[in-house]
Design a protein around this nucleic acid. Structure first.
Lengths: 342, 342
DNA sequence: TGGCATAATGTAAAGGATTACATCATTGTC
DNA sequence: GACAATGATGTAATCCTTTACATTATGCCA
């Protein structure tokens, strides 16, 4: 009596079978109008709600998608998540979010949700270092898709939605050389990620295009944190001759670098131009407002869901869409870059 | 044959019953050492993993806790989540994160997860405007707890882990008056939240303590976004005489305000001191580094999990701990506040 | 009117784990 | 040597839906 009502209670009250209740709730049109109203009234009367575990068990499908984020505190992922959530919600699916804290063990553990049935598919963002061997050998892997977002990972051909990072890095570096900068430094990401070399190569390519040498001395190591950007300021100021512009591989480092420069009395962009990558939320209200490359985050989230639906073989999904999709990026020019002082 | 292996497959291979397999996996010590090794070997051999749906169905418990965040892009919640996740993981529980996008309908929908069995308990952060009537009338509500974090909501007595916002606001305003400021403005939060009045009252109380009038003209409306902080800059500069200090009800607004002031040539802290609230990630690397009030976010997350365990009646939980807990906050003094120019 | 297609509903078998209860073997005690 | 207590394991019911298949009713056509 004090139990949660089940479908059987509804059936009894509506004087139909449980099968009919299930159909009334999920396949409207397969039951008569009269039955439908009786069932819905009964549901409302006793406050019935579906038991998800029973449904998942029977259907062998959870209707949930998992998004594994490397660091939930990183604002970059927020808008991607918003895009994912909107698209999934429209398709009647639930989004679960998990924070791996960049711990490979946790990432692997979350991938196991595909096996234990908590999720039908997984989106991986950031630079996962999953132990694929612990996950791959499932007979049903093909039916439990993994989609990478923003960054390739896993075996070649793993489904992906991303931008062309190398091109983005090239574009923003070209913006700096076009302003007249001849010595453009680069603060890199950590070498645990493929992004490091993609953005580094973009920087190199743009310098080559401008007929400038890619002096290895101009490459300053960073790790994507604001602190590493601040440390990079020291290295930067120690270079002779001092570069007149820096391209940081992400916005956090650019902000940390600008802050550290400010404390030393070096002005941006008057003394040094600084560009970032990603266009995180604070880039616009930072002082100076940050010149950067924007990834179309919301669109990436939506494209990732569409791709997932294709892989899940859902009706209505475009079964001819490419498995790896590269979306266009934007160059966002603001106040942290300017022509070099002469 | 191409099915996922089940507990029955394990049982057959280990030549025991399914009951014994279950015990070997979950109640070590209840089976003989020999049986345990046979079972574990069988599990490894065929790559068995538990079907969560079946377990949840049978146990009527999902071992999962849901955290509903109003805006996943807001860095404030990241560290709270880290604390929650660490504590829950240690207790063998799974954390699910959901983004309500501040949509009351979504918040209510996520609360329904308590009913449909996806989660055993829910943490609500931010300022939820849940339609409690749609959720409350469950016989089992008592067993499916909701814990508020950082901000009270719901019926009086709803379980809560928070800081004393009024006291925090008072402390930081007192810091400004102690520096010698006599005209201290306040940029408020949106009036959809109880926090607005708590922090406003703290500001008033500190001014009263310092023998200063709480001039309503010094109260500038904001909505917790950086943009509203930038707009507040206009209102601030229009005041005569111009205030020498501002306490913003959160860090985002403080940053937006400082940025807008900088664009107008007003220096912080030389011309105006600015203080924030929350100590979000960028507060430290912002230029100038932001003076603010830190909420012990990680500790709040851990305390919330402990409280949840108490409400769930878990073994080992402190069943005498208070249902509402106020944790101490920290005053973080950095570079955005200074004595007024004389 | 008979026969057949179609629509609406019911019956009962999964789906994969946990667990109350029963059974059996072993040890210890008197 | 008999009996109780303990430990290890097995049997089978249970958790709640969905869905393949069976059944019944209805309408249509010849």
């Amino acid at each position: 009596m004090n139990q949660r009502p089940t479908i059987e209670d509804v059936a009894r009250l509506a004087r139909v079978s449980t099968a009919t209740v299930s159909r009334a709730l999920h396949e409207p049109g397969k039951v008569s109008a009269d039955t439908a109203t009786r069932v819905h009234r009964a549901v409302a009367d006793i406050g019935y709600t579906l038991n998800i575990a029973a449904q998942t068990l029977r259907q062998r499908r959870s209707n949930a998608l998992l998004v594994v984020v490397p660091d939930i505190g990183n604002t970059f992922y927020g808008e991607v998540l918003a895009g994912i959530e909107a698209a999934a919600h429209a398709a009647g699916q639930t989004i679960l979010i998990a924070d791996s804290a960049q711990d490979p063990a946790r990432e692997t553990a979350y991938l196991a949700w595909l096996r234990n049935g908590r999720a039908d598919g997984v989106f991986l963002m950031g630079r996962p270092e999953v132990d694929w061997s612990a996950v791959a050998p499932l007979p049903e892997t093909g039916l439990r898709p993994v989609v990478m977002i923003s960054e390739p990972a896993g075996a070649p051909g793993t489904p992906l939605v991303s931008i062309d990072h190398q091109n983005g890095a090239m574009d923003i570096t070209a913006h700096l050389t076009a302003l007249g900068h001849r010595r453009v430094a680069h603060v890199t990401g950590p070498d645990t990620t493929g992004l490091r070399s993609l953005r580094l190569n973009g920087w190199r390519a743009a310098l080559a295009d401008a007929g400038l040498p890619a002096d290895p001395g101009l490459v300053i190591p960073g790790d994507f944190t604001a602190n590493s950007g601040a440390r990079a300021a020291e290295a930067l100021l120690a270079l002779t001759p001092r570069p007149t512009a820096v391209f940081c591989a992400n916005d956090e480092m650019a902000m940390g670098l600008i802050g550290a420069l400010a404390r030393k009395g070096v002005r941006v962009p008057q003394d040094i131009s600084v560009a970032g990558f990603d266009d995180i939320q604070f880039a616009a209200c930072f002082v100076p407002a940050l010149t950067t490359v924007r990834q179309p985050r919301r669109a990436m989230g939506q494209a990732a869901v569409a791709l997932m639906h294709r892989l899940l073989g859902r009706d209505g999904a475009d079964q001819t869409a490419p498995i790896q999709q590269i979306l266009p990026h934007d160059l966002v020019l603001r106040d942290s870059t300017a022509a070099p002082a002469r």
